[in-house]
Every structure is written in C-alpha cells, then in structure tokens.
C-alpha cells in the first residue's frame, strides 16, 4: 500500500482528475455497447474506452509513478501506444467480417449499394 497522505495536493488533484475522466469515458463506452441497437452503431462504442479512456488512466499512472520514483516514468506510454495501434486493426477486421456475413445472408438493414460490393464480385469472377 502506498501512503497517499504524504503526497502533496497539487500532484494528487490532476491524478484524480485523469483517473475520473478515463474511467468515466470507459464506462460510457461500455454502456453504449449495451444500449445501442445495431451492430454497426455498437462498433463505435469501445473506441471511447480505447482513446481517452486509456489515455486518462495511463496519464494518471505516469504522473503518480514519476512522483513516487522521483524521475520520469514513461513505460505506461508503451501500453497506450499499443492500444492505440491495435484497436483500429481489430475493429476494421470485425467490421469487414460483419459486413461479409450480412451480405451472405442478404440482411435487410444493409443499404442497397452495399449488398454486393467488390469482394463478392471478385470472388464470383475467380470461381
């Protein structure tokens, strides 16, 4: 356990602020994930948690670590960078997979111009 009482207020306040911002945004993203009606709407919700949700908590952790250690502690940046780079990859793959499946099932909620697009045509040509 860290003894927080010995840490001055001017460093505690920004840490607490970033913690609250980060966790609130993550929670809002998760609530959106539960509440939104269609998959393509829901795909936007987690990005709240992975952009400023992660940034807030990473910044808080960095400020705290730097104060405790008495030097710049920046290894949390690695985590933030990793999340920033990997989330788009996951979401793009997931979006493509969802569109692919909806096309195969000829889902009604897809707009007309999306029902048969490049990939389906390409595959039809190569088969």
């Amino acid at each position: 356990m860290t003894d927080f009482a010995t840490i001055p207020l001017w460093i505690i306040l920004p840490i607490a602020l970033f913690l609250v911002i980060g966790s609130t945004l993550t929670l809002l993203g998760a609530i959106g994930l539960v509440r939104l009606k269609s998959f393509y709407d829901r795909i936007h919700a987690p990005t709240l948690g992975t952009s400023w949700g992660t940034a807030g908590i990473v910044i808080a952790s960095m400020l705290f670590g730097s104060y405790i250690e008495g030097r710049a502690v920046i290894h949390e940046i690695a985590l933030g960078l990793f999340i920033t780079i990997t989330t788009p990859v996951t979401l793009i793959l997931l979006g493509r997979a969802a569109l692919h499946r909806d096309r195969l099932e000829k889902a009604d909620h897809l707009p007309e111009e999306l029902r048969s697009l490049p990939e389906a045509r390409d595959r039809a040509a190569s088969d």
């Binding site: 936007h44 990005t47 992975t50 979006g95």
Partner: peptide
C-alpha cells in the same frame, strides 16, 4: 478514422 469515436472504416477496395 477508426480511432476517432464516431466514425469506423468498414470496407476499402
């Protein structure tokens, strides 16, 4: 586009 909440990259040819 994907990292910005509110827009998502779905398909590119």
């Amino acid at each position: 586009i994907t990292a910005t909440p509110g827009s998502a990259w779905i398909e590119y040819s």
